[in-house]
């Protein structure tokens, strides 16, 4: 059953349509990604879902509640992590969590939450003295302190070092495993690919594709490429006779075979039958990056 339903959402700033008819549904327990370049309308979309911004058209339901009409009720069950939102420099980690816990009718055990987010030794540390990664984790903790059923996380790992990013990803998977539905706004392909069950690719205020990560890449191309260095000479026809193979190219000592499904298996077995060893064997697949460029005509990074 859908826990979030967005239909024909429209938001206009002046003459600019930041969100131009976006519709999607998110199932309970899903990690749903909203992926797109800067200025695509991702943040505006989730702000309308959160009730932080009023929409100009369409309908939004989160757990059956309208974020604009039932905002107070919804915020009891919605956890929101905003991009670029700080706390006063002198507030301590423990104080911030206790304060935010007092805002909810039911809240999480703050001690356990602090431990879970790896801030155990930092209870008394002021916000201003935390590293960027620690501030980010506290921010996630504040979004989770009200025991939300739905969490919206916007640009979760921007500005984090690679280790902190991987730790944050692990954390998000734990949160989902505890039954929380998650909307993840990101412009990082690897993040979306690693975490999301489904991804809406947004560009210029519209959803240009909505699918699983694998589905998105498959949609762009069914093609696979196998690249290897053969141990002995052979004629191209050996491979071209296979139904799976479309093209054979030679790059110096390397052979690049292009084709459809089960390409690798077909190529390797025919080589084996002819006592040819395929050294440096590599399968090159279309990446989500390639898919994104194909779908939007833009690159994500910049």
């Amino acid at each position: 059953m859908a826990i979030i339903e967005v239909r024909d959402l429209v938001k206009t700033y002046g003459t600019h349509r930041a969100v131009d008819g976006i519709s999607f549904e998110v199932g309970e327990g899903e990690i749903f990604g909203i992926l797109g370049p800067n200025g695509a309308g991702k943040t505006t979309t989730v702000e309308c879902v959160e009730g932080l911004r009023s929409r100009d058209g369409g309908s939004v339901k989160v757990m059956g509640l309208d974020p604009e009409k039932d905002g107070a009720e919804l915020k009891q069950v919605l956890g929101i992590q905003l991009q670029e939102s700080r706390l006063p420099d002198r507030i301590r980690v423990g104080e911030a969590l206790d304060l935010y816990a007092s805002f909810y009718k039911e809240h999480a055990d703050t001690d356990r939450l602090i431990e879970k987010l790896g801030l155990g030794g930092k209870r008394k540390t002021p916000f201003g003295k935390l590293s960027g990664g620690q501030q980010q984790r506290l921010s996630i903790a504040l979004a989770l302190v009200g025991n939300p059923r739905v969490a919206v996380l916007d640009e979760l790992t921007t500005g984090l070092d690679p280790q902190a990013r991987r730790d944050t990803w692990d954390l998000i998977e734990q949160v989902r495993n505890s039954g929380v539905t998650i909307i993840l706004v990101t412009h990082f392909m690897d993040e979306a690919e690693r975490l999301c069950d489904r991804i809406a690719v947004v560009d210029s205020g519209k959803i240009v594709a909505l699918d699983t990560p694998a589905g998105l890449t498959a949609r762009v191309s069914e093609e696979q490429r196998v690249r290897f260095r053969p141990s002995a000479e052979f004629a191209d026809a050996l491979l071209l006779d296979l139904p799976e193979v479309a093209r054979v190219e030679r790059h110096g000592a390397h052979v690049v075979v292009t084709g459809g499904e089960n390409l690798l298996q077909a190529v390797v077995s025919v080589l084996a039958r002819n006592q040819i060893v395929a050294a440096d064997l590599r399968v090159e697949q279309v990446s989500l990056d390639d898919a994104f460029v194909a779908l939007t005509g833009k690159s994500l990074e910049n």
Binding site: E50, L82, S85, P88
Partner: peptide, 17 residues
């Protein structure tokens, strides 16, 4: 003004209070 600029007020808007 600092609370507004740093998003302290905005963050509170995400809560029931």
């Amino acid at each position: 003004a600092a609370y507004r600029e740093q998003g302290v007020l905005r963050r509170m808007r995400t809560t029931p209070v």
